[in-house]
C-alpha cells in the first residue's frame, strides 16, 4: 500500500522539465533527484516526502527518451505517478525501472495538491483520504504486469534467461 501527499501538475510535463539535459551525465539517482522538476517547480525538491504521489493531467513525460526522468522521480521518494495519460517512451521506461504509473482521469479530476492519497497497485485502487473518495485505474496489459511483478525489465530478462538454462 502506497501513501502520500499529492503534487499536482497540468498537461505535457516533458522530460526536459522532469530532469534537464544538463544533468544527463549524472549517474547517481539521488543526485538526479536533487534537480527533479527544477525548471518548472523549484520548490518540488524541498516539498517532496517519501511516499508522495505526482498527479498530472495528460501526456505526462512527453519528449526525450531519457530514462533519467523516471529515475529522478523515483529517487525523489515519489511512490507512483497518476495521470490521465502518459507519453509512451516514459511509460515504458518507468515500468522498466520500477516506478509505478496509473492512468485514471477521474482520480486526476478529483484530486488537488496537498490531498492525501492511498494507492493499492495490484487492484489499481486510488483512495483520496482527504476527500473520502475512491477511484479505480485502468489495469495494465498482462505482459506489463509480468514485468512489474519481476521488478523491472532487467530482472525479468535475467529470470527468463536463467529459466531457459535450467
Amino acid at each position: 500500500m502506497l501513501k502520500g501527499r499529492v503534487h499536482k501538475y497540468g498537461a505535457n510535463v516533458d522530460t526536459d522539465a522532469i530532469i534537464p539535459a544538463r544533468y544527463l551525465n549524472v549517474s547517481e539517482p539521488e543526485e538526479l533527484a536533487r534537480h527533479c522538476m527544477e525548471d518548472i517547480d523549484t520548490e518540488f525538491v524541498n516539498r517532496v516526502r517519501p511516499g508522495d504521489v505526482i498527479v498530472a493531467t495528460t501526456n505526462f513525460g512527453c519528449g526525450s527518451s531519457r530514462e533519467h526522468a523516471p529515475l529522478a522521480i523515483k529517487a525523489s521518494g515519489v511512490s507512483c505517478v497518476i495521470a490521465g495519460s502518459f507519453a509512451r517512451i516514459f511509460f515504458r521506461n518507468a515500468i522498466n525501472i520500477g516506478l509505478p504509473l496509473l492512468e485514471c482521469n477521474e482520480a486526476v479530476d478529483g484530486t488537488e495538491a496537498g490531498d492525501e492519497l492511498e494507492v493499492e497497485l495490484a487492484s489499481g485502487t486510488i483512495r483520496n483520504l482527504t476527500r473520502g473518495t475512491e477511484f479505480t485505474a485502468k489495469p495494465y496489459p498482462e505482459f506489463m504486469s509480468e514485468l512489474i511483478a519481476a521488478g523491472g525489465l532487467i530482472e525479468h530478462t535475467r529470470q527468463r534467461l536463467s529459466n531457459r538454462r535450467t
Binding site: S65, E67, N93, L153, T157
Partner: peptide, 19 residues
C-alpha cells in the same frame, strides 16, 4: 525510440517486445 534499459536488453537479446 526507447529508454536506456530497453536498448541494453536489445543489445544482448537482439529482440524486444512491442505493442
Amino acid at each position: 525510440g526507447m529508454g536506456s534499459t530497453d536498448v541494453a536488453v536489445i543489445f544482448h537479446l537482439g529482440k524486444t517486445w512491442l505493442r
